[in-house]
Design a protein around this nucleic acid. Structure first.
Length: 882
RNA sequence: GGGAGAUUAGCUCAGUUGGUUUAGAGCGUCUGCCUUACAAGCAGAGGGUCGGGGGUUCGACUCCCUCAUCUCCCACCA
């Protein structure tokens, strides 16, 4: 059989992915086996794959493939999220390019465009995931706006409304003037922003709307809102301002009279101690307004422009208006001074627009009962967070959770099922027909055309919080009487969730709430939080910085397996990933290593009658045990979600133990055949190894597993059972390590003395040495004999392992002074070490307090140091006598 | 401003209830090798007073206090 000398991933990957799909290898149906379930964190339906997805989905795939090989019924449900704000803004942008404004078309027309956009761009990301090797059950692909899933969202809304947990409220919300919607507090990012602090003069009114010559100075960062001022507020304890109690002031430029009021909220030592109260455009001012019964005047429209109520600068954008009004105030003599000022300003997470606090009517879901229960799920250990530190973050948020603003002023999403009667009464029902009936129960005269549905849609998270339930049985959420279908019964709760810590509140917490409410059980057992993928110097990846590589290009260049390994190498749970392409090169190199070891093995011919050489027998015995030992370690790592530790242990087992030691030991002389026993053991080991690697690198392992021996059509390594650990003897493994050390020492001597492997050396041993290992040392160190040394022939280049002395007789090669210096340095170190240990043993307090075990360890250290010193002294003497 | 976490080799990180750790790994670095599986490789080597200071303890990378630096989360000082 001809094997390419180099591994060619692109050839192999598409072939096996198609094979897996053709044979339905990813598909799961409920059966009698233990389920292992993951639901994908749904990416934006029109998004494209970035490095964060690569990390997340690689981890998911490793877990799911591992579970599958462990014999579980593994099901990974894929899907996408409709991402209302992001998608709608893309569609708006597209329409703009076509010369169409959203305002000019109907909701239905807009949605038609949106669905077209979704059909065109939707699901690209799922195709890209296939390139990565993701073993999702594509037959189960879901979209948060699939009709059934949308209905689940509507049912949920109706359910909570009827339960009295959803209410409509006038609230100061975070208005995104670009997205034209309210966004939740969590979607606002506060950034310190440079601006100015404007000190303005408000003149005291004479009582008839005319200015007197007295004025007060008010500092603000937002002079464009002065027209909406409802009062000037000072602290009641601020004596500086008592003189103007009961007076009124005039708003500059428009000369509107407003009262001076007093409230504790105002800090005396901030700014001028005077606050302009603008209830419509600041959340705190709104609160003050409520306390003092101030009128609310909203002068900014949906787009962030001043409206006619502003009286001046009508139609101007708020920032343009700010510049203009500053000029006007200066011209009018109202501007006292302008200072540079940096203050936190809220930005929309989605559009990066400056958030405008704005009063509006929104729908809210009460957190009062949902949050404490969801908190308990984690606190009581029903859900485990990895790493654990996120429990703190979670607790803090859950204890302070505010009601969830679930309405969004958008069209793309699930429309709120609230219907208004002409008299303003509201009915909430899961369909128009039901709503009509309910409305007619109130007023039999109501006709369909009298009923008006709420214009807003629901927050996207209000659909994705149902995800672990609705992907299996969309009839479940919001319908407590519904009998869960077979899928839901079998797959829920899911096993593990892999996601980023940035959506712990948006998504993770809310899924827990929904799970508790509708399933009376948590939605998953473990949440593994990945880090955020950053570039090599720690910057977040972003399009503008251009530091975000295209995963598909990386896959094309290095292969999917290499990309997967590379991502995992630099990721431990919860730590940010400092991505560097060299990690992926390492993945590629590992593929090369695996590939070449296979070529080596496959290149051997077998001689049925050949006896097994001693060194091969030792090698087989050793690697079998080493494999078992490592399997235990790897399994332990997986059980603790220490994926990169599991990976590293596997990596070293393959590269160091198998390739560098085992294969070198059993490798026959060039052209010579190998005995059958060793050959069979070797292929067996190789198969076990690639099975261990498979969850991490699915493609190359499938290719080699299929090449290892003839397989039936439809057979796959995906369902090959994870290798099981056999017994292993620690002492035997330790003995082999002594042999390794001896080999390394001889090789080092060869290098120092420039002696090629071809010239055989002898090795003399003084002290204990496991006889069984002699053949291995001979083969790998190029040593012709390993013999017990008598005192007389204890000479040559020395080294010590443990307490055993070794000599490589090399007449003429020994540099006595050099060797002596090394030995004496070591001796010196050992003496000091011994001194330290003895000091400890002489310490009465230590002897009295330390447990026996620890004392025994110290005694052993003492003994070891003593015999090491003895060996060193002996070697020094031998050298001196030469 | 509040909270959480971090600081161990050049880089990225392990170090699991304080004592078999006389601090480890991978990558990188250095040296020598194109040795018929692999130069995307092989062999070998060097590299850290565990951020600073103090404390608890027989014993501290590990626990406590403090300082410094960094990261993240939450938070409206007009």
């Amino acid at each position: 059989m001809e094997i390419n000398s180099k591994y060619n991933p692109s050839e192999v990957e598409d072939k096996w992915y198609a094979y897996w799909q053709e044979h339905k290898c990813f598909h799961s149906e409920p059966d009698e086996k233990e389920p292992y379930t993951i639901v994908i964190p749904p990416p934006n339906v029109t998004g494209i794959l970035h490095m964060g997805h690569v990390l997340n989905n690689t981890l998911n795939d490793v877990l799911i493939r591992k579970a599958r090989m462990d014999g579980k019924n593994a099901c990974w449900v894929p899907g996408t999220d409709h991402a209302s704000i992001a998608t709608e803004s893309k569609v708006v942008a597209k329409l703009k390019g076509m010369g169409i404004s959203k305002e000019d078309i109907t909701r239905e027309e807009f949605l038609k465009y949106a669905w077209e956009w979704k059909e065109e761009h939707g699901g690209i990301i799922l195709k890209q995931l296939r390139k990565l090797g993701a073993s999702c059950d594509w037959d189960r692909t879901r979209f948060t706006m699939d009709p059934e899933l949308s209905q689940a969202v509507i049912n949920t809304f109706v359910y909570f409304y009827k339960k009295g947990w959803i209410y409509r409220g006038v609230r100061m919300v975070n208005w995104d003037p670009e997205g034209h919607t309210a966004v939740s507090d969590d979607e606002v990012i506060h950034k310190d922003t440079k601006s100015h602090f404007y000190h303005m003069r408000y003149f005291i009114s004479d009582g008839h709307g005319n200015p007197t010559d007295k004025y007060i100075v008010i500092a603000t960062t937002r002079p464009e809102t002065i027209m909406a001022d409802a009062a000037i507020c000072v602290n009641p304890n601020d004596e500086r301002h008592h003189w103007m109690r009961g007076k009124k002031v005039l708003i500059p430029l428009i000369n509107k009279e407003i009262p001076i009021i007093e409230d504790d909220y105002v800090e005396m030592d901030f700014g001028t101690g005077c606050l302009k109260v603008t209830p419509a455009h600041d959340a705190h001012d709104y609160e003050i307004g409520l306390r003092h019964n101030l009128p609310v005047l909203d002068i900014i429209d949906d787009h962030g422009r001043l409206n006619e109520k502003a009286q001046i600068l009508i139609g101007e954008d708020r920032f343009v208006a700010r510049e203009k009004i500053v000029k006007m105030l200066q011209d009018a003599g109202n501007m006292e001074k302008v200072e540079d000022y940096t203050s936190p300003v809220g930005y929309s997470e989605r559009t990066n627009a400056v958030i405008e606090p704005r009063l509006s009517v929104q729908w809210f879901l009460k957190m009062g009962e949902l949050a404490p229960r969801a908190l308990a799920s984690v606190e009581d250990g029903f859900i485990k967070f990895i790493p654990d530190k996120y429990r703190n973050t979670y607790r803090h948020w859950m204890e302070n959770a505010r009601d969830w603003c679930i309405s969004r002023q958008l069209w793309w999403g699930q429309r709120i099922p609230a219907y208004y009667l002409p008299d303003g009464q509201i009915v909430v029902e899961s369909s128009f027909e039901k709503a009509l009936k309910a409305a007619q129960a109130i007023d039999p005269a109501i006709k369909p055309e009298n009923l008006r549905q709420d214009e807003d849609v629901l927050d996207t998270w209000f659909s994705s919080w149902l995800w672990p339930i609705s992907v299996f049985d969309p009839d479940m959420p919001g319908q407590p009487d519904h009998e869960p279908n077979a899928d839901l019964k079998y797959y829920y709760p899911t096993s593990d969730l892999v996601t980023g810590p940035d959506i712990i509140f948006f998504w993770v917490a809310r899924m827990i709430m929904a799970g508790n409410e509708f399933m009376n059980d948590v939605p998953f057992r473990n949440v593994y939080f990945t880090g955020i993928v950053r570039d090599k110097i720690g910057r977040k990846m972003s399009k503008t910085l251009g530091n975000s590589p295209d995963p598909l290009e990386l896959i094309a260049k290095y292969g999917a397996d290499a990309v997967r390994l590379g991502m995992l190498l630099c990721s431990s749970a919860g730590n940010d990933i400092l991505y560097d392409e060299s990690m992926i090169e390492q993945g590629r190199n590992f593929c090369g290593k695996i590939w070449n070891s296979f070529r080596l093995i496959k290149g051997w011919s077998v001689d049925e009658s050949a006896p097994t050489p001693e060194h091969s027998a030792v090698a087989v015995k050793w690697f079998g045990q080493k494999l078992s030992q490592t399997i235990c370690i790897v399994e332990d790592h997986y059980s603790k979600f220490r994926i990169n530790d599991a990976l590293m242990a596997t990596y070293k087992l393959f590269w160091d133990d198998f390739c560098s030691w085992y294969l070198e030991l059993v490798k026959p002389a060039y052209g010579a055949a190998m005995d059958k026993a060793t050959y069979d053991a070797t292929t067996g080991f190789f198969e076990a190894l690639i099975k261990m690697v498979h969850p991490i690198m699915p493609f190359i392992t499938e290719e080699l597993w299929q090449s290892l021996e003839p397989r039936k059509d439809g057979e796959t390594i995906m369902y090959a059972p994870t290798p099981k650990a056999g017994a292993f003897d620690e002492k035997f493994l330790a003995d082999f390590d002594i042999a390794r050390e001896a080999v390394a020492s001889v090789r080092a001597i060869r290098k120092q003395k420039n002696i090629p492997m071809k010239s055989a050396l002898e090795l003399k041993v003084k002290g204990e040495f496991p006889e069984e290992m002699a053949s291995a040392v001979k083969k790998l160190a190029g040593v012709s004999s390993v013999e017990k040394a008598q005192d007389a022939d204890a000479q040559g280049v020395p080294f010590i392992i443990g307490t055993t002395e070794f000599f490589v007789p090399l007449a003429g090669f020994v540099n006595v002074e050099e060797e002596l210096a090394k030995l004496e340095a070591d001796l010196d170190y050992q003496k000091k070490f011994l001194e330290g240990v003895r000091r400890k043993l002489a310490n009465e307090s230590f002897m009295a307090h330390a447990p026996e075990k620890v004392v025994a360890v110290e005694r052993k250290k003492e003994a070891d140091a003593l015999s090491r010193i003895e060996s060193l002294t002996s070697q020094i003497n031998s050298l001196k006598n030469n």
